[in-house]
Write a protein that binds this DNA or RNA. Structure first.
Lengths: 112, 112
DNA sequence: TCCATAATTCGATCATACAAGAACTATTGT
DNA sequence: ACAATAGTTCTTGTATGATCGAATTATGGA
């Protein structure tokens, strides 16, 4: 992920409705949720939600695929991971004062 | 770090000049750099840099302290770390697909 | 084909953010 | 007190982003 992509992704996350949508979709794996249901669950007007989902998709954080009448939005976990990696490595220089999380801070894959 | 603070911090990072300033200051520890030198190194007009530094400070990502004629800006590493922790835990739910970094991805503190 | 559903796109409006230069504040040295 | 230096704040213009309602596209079913 280059700097420009990171800035776009950060800007996409820096909005209440969009962050809420992403957090909701983060636990809806892997199929995601239809736009209407996201709007309903977050109590946001459909036209507004659509605008914000499009922003997240442009930033690469969500993928969209049609399933019948619905359009399912799902988190692109790879992209999200790349954003975190960018912040830790390219931005923070893997500085332990910033990136030195212990295993209590988040789940580590087995064996690492 | 709550959601509102995270949104403010993400918005502060989502700008080219500000991200560049933060990356520069990340390796200037712990004393930081004066506003003028940051502007000069990044080839940004002082009035513009001042505006962006103020934005980063409002977001809590930088601290400012006067030293004689200069005002030294320095990264608040705790805040930066808290932002990353927010993204991994509160936003991504510590999902291993996102947060499961190996030790090669960044430096881990000894013993963890 | 016709209707209902799901979602987006369009158009207008309002708010916020950025940029550039001028003016202002704070500090140091003479 | 005065001048020089370091930064910030103010003002204006411009661009981008957010919101709302209306219109439009796409799909599935009767």
């Amino acid at each position: 992920m280059d700097t420009h992509e990171a800035i776009t992704a950060l800007g996409a996350l820096a909005q209440e409705d969009r962050l809420a949508a992403l957090r909701l979709l983060m636990v809806q794996v892997p199929e995601g949720l239809p736009s209407g249901e996201i709007a309903e669950r977050l109590d946001i007007q459909p036209t507004r939600m659509s605008f914000h989902l499009a922003t997240l998709e442009r930033a690469g954080l969500l993928t969209a695929r049609r399933n019948g009448r619905c359009i399912l939005y799902a988190v692109d976990h790879v992209r999200m991971r790349n954003l975190l990696a960018f912040l830790m490595k390219d931005c923070c220089g893997s500085n332990p004062a910033v990136c030195g999380f212990s295993q209590d801070d988040f789940i580590m894959p087995a064996g690492s």
